[in-house]
Simulated scan of single mutants.
Amino acid sequence: MDLKLEVVVVPVSDVDRAKDFYSGKLGFRLDADFPIHDGYRIVQVTPPGSACSVIFGDGLTTAPAGSAQGLHLIVTDIEQAHAELTGRGVDVTGPFHDATGAFHHAGGAQRVQGMAPDRPSYGTFASFADPDGNEWFFQEITTRAPGR
């Protein structure tokens, strides 16, 4: 059985502000904006090159606005991605790597500023948040691990 991640729901407090951020500042493709009825609205955006979309709106989740953590966008050049989003007015932290050389810890624990030594795939990150505080990461992958 194939299972494909299709949609991630991100909790937001202001749908229009989120729409401006994701489709404007981040440059995600705006796929849909369905104002079904008062209190129920669905907005779908898709990151460039991604098969998985992001949905936010009204009446879609009981999760508190800003509570999404650890969402990852994969890039082949983290410095370029950092520069592009910074140029669009997004506050991006990093690049950084984890002191263990593995996946980053939660929060800022074990975070070391700068590129991972020898710049291995999967080893360098940058982060930013949407206007509600939903946490996103860039992860630089230039060569995928076997089977990926």
Rank of each mutant, 00 (worst) to 15 (best):
T143C: 04
F21R: 10
P48E: 05
A68W: 04
S53R: 15
L30I: 06
K19R: 15
G70N: 15
F28R: 03
C52M: 09
V92P: 12
Q110A: 14
A129Q: 13
T142W: 08
R148H: 08
T86F: 03
G24V: 01
P146Q: 11
A51P: 02
M1I: 10
D2H: 13
G24H: 05
E84M: 03
K25L: 14
H105F: 09
I78C: 02
T124V: 11
M115V: 11
F137Y: 15
A83G: 02
A99V: 05
L71I: 15
N134V: 02
Q113G: 14
L5K: 00
G87K: 04
F137S: 12
S50K: 13
Q113R: 12
R17W: 00
D132E: 04
I55M: 15
V112R: 12
T76C: 06
D132C: 06
K4Y: 01
A109H: 13
H82P: 00
R119V: 00
M1D: 10
I78L: 00
G70W: 10
A116T: 13
S23Y: 04
S53M: 14
S23N: 06
L26S: 05
V10I: 15
H104S: 08
G94I: 11
K4V: 03
G107N: 03
F21Y: 15
R41Q: 14
G147T: 07
T124G: 07
P117E: 08
T46N: 08
P146G: 07
V9Q: 09
D2P: 10
A68K: 13
W136I: 07
R41W: 10
V43G: 13
E135P: 00
W136S: 12
F103S: 09
E140Q: 15
A51H: 12
F56E: 07
A18N: 03
V15A: 08
G147F: 11
G94N: 09
D16T: 10
V112L: 14
V9N: 14
D38A: 15
D33R: 01
A106N: 05
G39Q: 08
V10D: 06
L26V: 05
H82M: 11
G70D: 12
V8F: 01
E140P: 02
V75H: 01
V45F: 07
N134L: 10
T46L: 02
G89Q: 06
F103V: 11
V75N: 04
T62N: 13
S67K: 08
V75S: 04
G108T: 10
H37T: 13
R119W: 00
G39T: 02
E79M: 01
